[in-house]
Every structure is written in C-alpha cells, then in structure tokens.
Design a binder for these strands. Sequence first.
DNA 1: AACAAGACCTGCATGC
DNA 2: TGCATGCAGGTCTTGT
Length: 275
Amino acid sequence: MPELPEVETIRRGLALRISGRQIVRAELRRPDLRRPFPPMLAERLQGARIGALARRGKYLLVELGDTGLLLLHLGMSGRITAGLTNTPPEKHDHVILTLDDGTVVRFNDPRRFGLIDYLERGAAGLHPLLAGMGPEPLEPGFDGAYLDRALAGKLTPIKAALLDQRIVAGLGNIYVCEALFRAGLSPRRLAATVAGARAVRLAAAIRAVLGEAIEAGGSSLRDYVQANGELGYFQHRWEVYGKEGEPCSACTCAEGVRRIVQSGRSTFYCAKRQR
DNA sequence: AACAAGACCTGCATGC
DNA sequence: TGCATGCAGGTCTTGT
C-alpha cells in the first residue's frame, strides 16, 4: 500500500495532468472494490470538471464539479496512472476515465483493497472515513508534545500505535519501521513509555523520513508507480525495512536486522540500536 | 474498552 | 512442470 509519501507523490503528479480537465467518459469495469461503488458514480463522473486534488492521510480527495468530492484509497496494491496513450485496458484496470484533452486515467488494483466514495464537499470533515483521523504529520501541530499526549496510557507496542490512523495519519508498515529506527526506539516498547524527549525524537524522525521519501518520489514496490508511470526510488534508502539479517546502516552487530511479527505484520528493527 | 487475530483479494517467490 | 505455502504497502470486523 501506498503510504503517505506515495499518495502525496501521486497527488502531485496527477494534479498536473487532470486538474481543470473535464471527464468526457467514465467506465466502471466492476461494481466494487473493498466496498460497492457509491450510487450514481458513473453519472457523477461523466461530464464533471475536475478541480483541485488534496490528500488526507492515505486518502486522495478530488474535487468534482462545483460541490462534489471523490474520495480514493489505494489499499495495498492500488495504482492511478494518467497519460495520453490509449492502450487497451489491462487486467485489474477497474475504473477508466477519458478527459477532454485525451488523457486516460486508470485506477488499477489487483487486490481490490482500495476504495472509492463520493461526497458533498462541505461534508468532508464529517465523512466516517475521515472523521477521527489523527493529525497530518507534516503539518504544524504534529510534534513531540502532541505524540506524548496521544500515546499516554496506551499499553500497545509503539509499532501498533503508529499504524493507528487515529493517532497520526498516513503512516504504514514501511515508514513506521524506518521512523522507529531513526528515533532509536524499539518497536516493542509500550507506546505509553514514548514520552518527553523520546516523543520529541520520534516526531522529528517521522517528519524527516516522510519528507525525504516525498522528495525521492516515494518507494516503488512491485506495484506502485507515480502518476506518470515513473518509479520512486526511496526504497533504496530503507535502513531496516525488508533487510532481515543484513547489518543495519548504523552498526555491524552479528545478528543484523531482526524481523518479528506484531499484530500480524512484519516489523524490522535493530535490537542493538533501538531500545 | 483495548487489543490481537481473522478476513478480505491477487500475485509472486520459494521449495518440493 | 505443477502444486503448496507463505508473504506483500491496509483497514474493517470479530472475538477475547
């Protein structure tokens, strides 16, 4: 799944190609992804003018006409591409839009964990999927003091707490592992013990790793590409994620990076550097 | 109430 | 070659 940096990279690339354009044709090639498409989706898309593109956590928000808002989530394997080449649909191209300048936009998602919803723009803050979401980690207000407060009393491991979108929006498995490594904090540490100076370090690490990843165009895995089809390259700068057994970037201890499973998901960390 | 586990899907790498 | 297994960027629901 694209995490915050990948969604932000897609937002920026996509905005250049689709903002201000009109949708002349909307093809829904199946009725649902993770949940059914909202009623009248094809009709709402057809003929609509595309406005600004925003992001909230891992959600992409696309202004549609004067009052509409399209809500998109890419799940684990979702991709959105936009280009002028009108090749035949590929497997898992679930939604295909044609714009007034010939641009073809495709939502491709093999695993179908993605989501598309439609809402009235004024109601965005009240939407069940957006209400209750934690702060944007790259905006003012997300700092050590906030994290300290948000984690107080939480008896779950810090790894799990950071994946909780109600605490902070946009982090996923990769960037949580990388941020905890940078902050020198064990993923197994109870969230409540990340307070004071530790919370300050962690907030700074989260902001740094996300910022650098956006600059690098995100991390390209098997099925993530930017809106223009190019690959991001932050995956080359991972220090622990996917590196089981290898020495971490900061030490050469014999054991190397360790892989454990926390709430069903792989966690990578260096037991020597992270406490 | 808080937390962990299971479910939802397809594709790919690995090992026999 | 085929088949079984385990793993993958997320989140929603179920069960303890």
